[in-house]
Computed example of a mutant assay.
Amino acid sequence: MTRLFSGRITRVVLAALAGCGAGVALHAISKADGSYAFAVVGAVVGVTVALAVQFYRSTARLTEVRITVPQLSELTFVVNNDAQQVAWQLFVESVTRTSTQRLGDDEGLIREALTSLYGLFATTRDTLKASRPSTLSVGFTVENLAVTLLNRELRPFLSKWHPLLREFENANPDQPESVWPRAAECRAELRQLQTATREYVLAFAKLAGVQDPHIMLGTESGD
């Protein structure tokens, strides 16, 4: 937050200096008397513009948020209304899928879990493509977090297990996946992926300003 405050002060000072310069230039062009008056008027105009910009950014709810994701350590994000909306969309998409809802050894189907994860991958990518990119010069962005989730967590798991399961399904079209020799191994890695993904989902929730996201995830706070 100190960097944000310092940056705002710098913009105001620079705007004032620019205004002074504009006032002096205007005086030189008009060849009128009262150069100090022109400089003061220019400074006032510059400060007014800077304050107007500052007010706009304040109404856009520019905030700094610190988030700890075990895979990434502590990160500082700067978010506004647009970023919060993107984070909310990503949170909703994630929290309702198998990516965060754990499966027991005898619950659900691996194929359904993989399909759900593919859906999350595609939806996250589409959400990012449809949203405006962040233009803030400090901190990390929601896009950084989302792309890291895709490339570091989802992509490696899907690239490994989708071809293996598809190979078994093609070779054994009449057999249930429970007889797949690698089913237990796949489920174990799925649980690891879900544990990692939940941390990203909680981060999306914090960026979006969600209250008590653990309730939506079906866990107690701190689990």
Results as ranks from 00 to 15, higher is better:
Arg57Glu: 15
Arg57Gly: 02
Arg57Val: 04
Ser58Leu: 07
Ser58Pro: 00
Thr59His: 13
Thr59Arg: 11
Ala60Ser: 08
Ala60Lys: 14
Arg61Leu: 12
Arg61Cys: 15
Arg61Trp: 06
Leu62Asn: 14
Thr63Leu: 03
Glu64Leu: 07
Glu64Ser: 13
Arg66Asp: 07
Arg66Lys: 13
Thr68Asp: 05
Pro70Cys: 09
Pro70Met: 01
Pro70His: 03
Gln71Ser: 06
Glu74Asp: 11
Leu75Val: 14
Val78Tyr: 15
Val79Tyr: 08
Asn80Glu: 14
Asn81Leu: 15
Asp82Pro: 00
Asp82Tyr: 06
Ala83Lys: 00
Ala83Trp: 00
Ala83Glu: 04
Gln84Pro: 03
Gln85Asn: 13
Gln85Ile: 07
Gln85Val: 03
Val86Cys: 01
Ala87Arg: 02
Ala87Asn: 01
Trp88Val: 12
Trp88Thr: 09
Gln89Cys: 01
Leu90Met: 09
Leu90Pro: 02
Val92Trp: 10
Glu93Lys: 02
Glu93Cys: 01
Ser94Trp: 01
Ser94Ala: 04
Val95Glu: 10
Thr96Phe: 08
Arg97His: 03
Arg97Asn: 05
Arg97Phe: 00
Thr98Arg: 06
Thr98Glu: 15
Ser99His: 08
Ser99Val: 13
Thr100Ser: 03
Gln101Lys: 07
Gln101Trp: 00
Leu103Asp: 02
Leu103Gln: 08
Leu103Lys: 10
Leu103Met: 13
Gly104Leu: 10
Asp105Ile: 06
Asp106Asn: 12
Glu107Gln: 13
Glu107Ile: 06
Glu107Phe: 07
Leu109Trp: 09
Ile110Pro: 03
Ile110Leu: 14
Glu112Leu: 01
Ala113Val: 12
Leu114Val: 09
Ser116Arg: 04
Leu117Gly: 11
Leu117Tyr: 02
Leu117Asn: 04
Leu117Trp: 02
Tyr118Asn: 12
Gly119Thr: 08
Leu120Asp: 03
Phe121Lys: 15
Phe121Pro: 01
Thr123Asn: 12
Thr123Arg: 10
Thr124Gln: 06
Asp126Gln: 15
Asp126Trp: 06
Thr127Lys: 11
Thr127Val: 11
Lys129Asn: 09
Lys129Ser: 07
Ala130Cys: 14
Ala130Gln: 11
Ala130Met: 11
Ala130Arg: 08
Arg132Ala: 14
Arg132Gln: 15
Pro133Thr: 05
Leu136Met: 10
Val138Asn: 09
Phe140Gly: 13
